[in-house]
Design a protein around this nucleic acid. Structure first.
Lengths: 129, 129
DNA sequence: CTTGACCTTACCCTAAGGGGAAAGGCTAAA
DNA sequence: TTTAGCCTTTCCCCTTAGGGTAAGGTCAAG
């Protein structure tokens, strides 16, 4: 049974995050000691680890919740998991493309800018139209 | 002198955004009519256009504010503008690379998943460790 | 005169926590 | 025994960039 700071160290999450996950019902409330401190059993630590991995993989908390439920469900269909992953892949791809387009435009106009002490600036010009 | 909805239509911003920019001091408060309605003169419309362009180019409001101030300042140095743009370029590049890395990992593990009605799932396995 | 479209302020909501206050708990050293 | 120095708790405000909605005032057309 780890204290919350030990659980944080062990999982790589922050104390704030762990309490937050409890608040929003992402994990169950851990048992409390006589001092009212939270103490985390193995089962909860495993869930916290899972959530940390899901977050690191780019899933938001809503998606992490769905994945965790699938993880806990021994009768899951891998198709359901794959659907979530593929949706995230599509989302990431779209975001990357959009940002890449922005980046290209920004790089192009920035190359035109002399970057000296005169006010003449193609970047400003581009934004002012 | 356009009303706020006309200004919104003209600039492509939302009414909420325009009022928000005023609230945070990004633009000056427009003159009001006897009815207390906001009426936007050309100078403000130009600023709103500029902000819209900056936002579309990927700059956040803080950066847009700095750019707008440079835009208004006839004694600006284009080097100052270029510095902001290059910082944004670096930021975008870093974000894109990080997301691309996530995407690659996610695609790789997702390809391993059969996506059928059995619980066996490499995606879950990857997250559970 | 009424109706619908427009405007105003004010408040709460988003995601995912971070920061910090105020209060209480635990252990080791003086 | 007391103090110091961490640990924990709850509570509340803060972040981005507005969106949604309510309650109430205004304007123009039929």
């Amino acid at each position: 049974m780890l204290s919350i700071s030990q659980a944080a160290k062990e999982t790589g999450l922050s104390i704030k995050s762990i309490r937050h996950y409890e608040t929003i019902g992402l994990i169950a409330a851990p048992p409390r000691g006589d001092n009212d401190y939270r103490y985390y059993p193995q089962a909860l630590l495993k869930q916290l680890h899972f959530i940390k991995s899901a977050r690191d993989a780019g899933f938001n908390l809503k998606e992490s919740r769905a994945l965790l439920q699938l993880c806990e469900n021994e009768k899951r269909s891998s198709a359901d998991v794959k659907a979530i992953a593929e949706q995230k892949i599509a989302e990431l791809q779209a975001r990357i493309e959009q940002q890449q387009a922005l980046l290209n435009k920004l790089k192009k106009v920035t190359r035109q800018c002399h970057g000296d002490d005169t006010p003449d600036c193609p970047i400003i010009d581009a934004l002012a139209n």
